[in-house]
Amino acid sequence: MPHDDASQFGLDPRLVARYLTSNGWQLDQLRSNLRRIWLPEEGAANPIEIFLSFDTKSQDRDLAFALTTISQYYERSVETLASEIRALSCDIISSKIPDEYVRNDSIELRIASEYLDRMRVFLAASATTELNGERFYKRLRKEAVEYSERCRFGHTFRGSFGFHIESPVGLNDAPSFEGIDEEVPFGRLVVERISRGLSSLSQAALQGNPNLIVAEGQGLSANMCEAIISIIEDIGVSRIDMQISFSPEWRPRVSPLPTKFSMHFQQLDILKDAAKALRVDDPPRHAQVFGRIKRLETEGNPADLIEDKSRREIEVSWVNEENQLVQVRVALSPEAYLDALEAHKNGHAVLATGIVSKVGRNWRLDPIETFKIVS
């Protein structure tokens, strides 16, 4: 590390001060933005001391000197020390891939890339579930995606392949009292939900009962289950061991929280059953379906308006209230079907009103109230 550059570690002077004071160092405030931190040692005439500036102009220089001094005293590398300090303001999710996939302390680039992508999706799904408080959602929340992007993916560790995911929680500067609720940071809420959810998955797999996942109201949602399925299937490894380390800055709301878990192929059927049970289809509702016709279908003669009573159906491309593009099936009378045929030929849109519902993956407008061509 260059002697005056600590920016690569993303550390705040408050974190370094908190790390040292938690390990027995003393802190003196010299000025509003300058701290003296020193280690009292019995019989030592000149204690080890560090000066930290909270002024951004000299912050990097002071941090670089502090990290060098502390790493020499504790006989740790600067990189290891920086990770330990940063962990004070993060909850850490560690994961390990079996040794058989590791060659010379590395793995296939495909596995690493798939893991990073799928874990980001899982974090965003967990954050959206925490924000919505529902068992199933239709689309990711913007705030959840932003949270997943703030999470830091740490370095692999030697001997086996693994990642550290750091979920930011910040420092707790408010006094902490037993029995009094704290205002818990969002990152902690998300990781607590992941912990409870993965614990319910472990129990469900052990007992062969997906209802244990469904019954945990503060755990996995259908989307989180599907994200775990994607991790297991797409990465293509037999097992991923995981461990959660909670920052000591914040008390868990429920103690103790489970911290060790595994994801593996044997859990796939349990996860799929739980996801199906947690996913609730939209209730039927009144809607106006506007869009262009994608498909027309009839089992008879479309021009015979009197004798032929065969089913006539169209499929309309509709952007619904959640800004999702869906295909809605609409059953039409012979007269309306001929109008739809003409609209499709001329590239015109249609507008239909009625009761829209979703059954499985299919959307349908039935019964239909009105139908007209929009030219």
Rank of each mutant, 00 (worst) to 15 (best):
M1R: 15
P2V: 06
D4W: 13
Q8N: 15
G10H: 00
V16P: 01
A17M: 12
R18D: 08
R18T: 06
T21F: 09
Q29R: 03
Q29H: 04
L30D: 05
N33W: 10
R35D: 05
R35Y: 05
W38R: 02
G43Y: 09
N46P: 08
P47G: 03
I48S: 13
E49P: 02
I50N: 00
I50R: 00
F54R: 02
T56I: 10
Q59A: 09
L63C: 06
L63M: 10
A64I: 02
A66C: 05
Y73T: 05
R76H: 10
E79N: 08
S83K: 08
S83P: 07
A87Q: 06
S94K: 13
E100V: 10
E100R: 12
E100H: 13
V102A: 10
N104L: 09
D105K: 02
A112Q: 09
M119T: 11
M119H: 12
M119A: 08
V121W: 11
T128Y: 05
E130G: 06
G133H: 09
F136I: 13
K138Q: 13
L140R: 07
K142G: 10
K142Y: 12
E143W: 06
V145A: 05
S148Q: 01
S148H: 01
E149H: 06
C151N: 03
H155R: 14
H155S: 15
R158D: 13
R158E: 15
S160W: 15
G162A: 06
H164A: 12
P168K: 05
V169L: 11
G170E: 02
D173I: 07
P175W: 00
E178V: 15
E178P: 11
D181T: 12
G187V: 07
R188H: 04
G197C: 01
L201A: 07
Q207Y: 14
G208A: 02
N211T: 10
I213C: 03
I213D: 01
A215P: 15
L220E: 04
N223Q: 07
C225P: 00
I229V: 13
I231M: 02
E233C: 01
D234K: 14
I235G: 03
G236D: 01
V237W: 00
V237S: 02
I240Y: 03
V254R: 08
P258L: 04
S262C: 11
F265P: 08
F265S: 10
Q266G: 11
I270W: 06
I270Y: 06
A275M: 03
A277I: 10
V280R: 13
R285I: 03
R285Q: 06
H286N: 15
A287S: 14
R292Y: 11
I293V: 07
G300T: 10
P302W: 01
E307H: 12
I314G: 00
V316M: 04
W318E: 00
N323K: 09
Q324S: 08
Q324C: 09
Q327T: 14
R329H: 09
R329A: 11
R329G: 07
V330Q: 00
S333W: 05
Y337R: 04
G347C: 03
H348I: 04
H348R: 11
A349F: 09
L351M: 09
A352T: 02
T353K: 08
G354I: 05
G354T: 03
I355K: 12
W363T: 01
D366F: 12
D366S: 14
I368Y: 05
K372R: 12
I373S: 01
